[in-house]
């Protein structure tokens, strides 16, 4: 399959890239990992006049923690880099759990977290993870930088709020309020399939109290679902069988699954409950072992 014809530019600076997008007047697309965009081009669901390839811009492939615990993921940080990261497992367990479950190993070599967020596929895994973590996207445009909370960044299926001359340069995860814990579980029919159900749980704990909790769901609605009530039910409380059950019930209620070839609505709702319970039980088991 051949994409429609487009002009191609591979600028070496963000300023140049933004100028090109500005001149493109809405008919330009940014190419990062290309693992969603190139299939869209081939199917001609997307037919931009200009492709601005940002892969030759240096200094965008980082993921790092600031001194205060804030985590930053650059626009060219590949899924594989997060999967192999030595700093993620202990400090960002929800992200560490999700990274190996994105697409398949070959796609992870090229695809990027920030690109996934921009692509805004309602079944994208990273959007749930970043939502559960309360993260935001930093957009850079002619007028400078702005931070956009992930819940506002995605405006609909395959739509984001970036202006035509803005580039998403990084995703930012705020520093945890205490110890970061959590996980991501994904039910898929085979490697590389979209999630039948995905559940991201990110909680911060201090002593035995939950200080912050975020729960977000993949594949059980028209968009990523933030189960805010389920998270809120945990805050200020210890993780016990009762509080976990309550959060799992609220998350299952927040899901809006549809029956399709991947499973019935009832089944998917059940899996949401199971996954929330499983992740939180693992958190308590890990904490018990450490104590």
């Amino acid at each position: 399959m051949y994409p429609s014809r487009f002009r191609y530019e591979a600028p070496q600076s963000l300023d140049h890239a933004i100028n090109l997008l500005h001149e493109g007047a809405g008919e330009a697309k940014v190419l990062a990992g290309g693992q969603s965009l190139i299939p869209l081009l081939k199917l001609r669901f997307a037919a931009p006049e200009l492709l601005v390839d940002i892969n030759n811009i240096s200094g965008l492939d980082y993921h790092r923690f600031e001194a205060d615990g804030t985590m930053r993921v650059g626009a060219l940080c590949r899924h594989a880099a997060l999967e192999r990261s030595s700093i993620l497992a202990s400090r960002a367990p929800t992200m560490a759990a999700a990274a190996p479950l994105i697409a398949d190993p070959i796609v992870r070599n090229r695809g990027t977290l920030v690109g996934s967020l921009c692509h805004a596929d309602p079944q994208g895994d990273w959007a749930s993870v970043v939502t559960a973590l309360g993260g935001h996207v930093v957009a850079l445009g002619p007028d400078g930088r702005r931070a956009i909370p992930i819940t506002e960044f995605v405006s609909g299926p395959f739509q984001n709020v970036l202006a035509i001359d803005e580039i998403a340069v990084e995703a930012v995860i705020p520093a945890p309020k205490g110890n970061a814990a959590g996980g991501y579980l994904k039910l898929e029919r085979r490697v590389g399939d979209f999630a039948t159900v995905g559940v991201a749980v990110a909680i911060d704990t201090s002593g035995n109290q939950v200080t912050r909790a975020g729960i977000a769901l993949t594949g059980v609605g028209g968009t990523t679902i933030e189960a805010a009530g389920a998270g809120q039910a945990l805050v200020g409380r210890p993780l016990t069988a009762d509080t976990i059950e309550r959060a799992a019930n609220l998350a299952a209620e927040a899901a809006k699954p549809r029956t399709d070839h991947r499973g019935s609505a009832e089944y998917k709702r059940h899996i949401v409950h199971t996954f929330v319970t499983r992740i939180l039980n693992r958190v308590t088991e890990t904490a018990d072992k450490a104590a």
Binding site: Y8, A10, L31, G34, Q35, I38, P39, K42, L43, L51, D53, N55, D104, P105, I106, V107, N109, R110, G192
Partner: peptide, 25 residues
């Protein structure tokens, strides 16, 4: 369609699906 991996080549030693990469890249 980026699913099967039959077109995998190594780009700088790293596996990539050559149907999901532009030649100019």
């Amino acid at each position: 369609t980026t699913n099967c991996g039959a077109c995998t080549v190594l780009v700088d030693g790293v596996p990539a699906k050559s149907c999901t990469m532009l030649a100019v890249q």
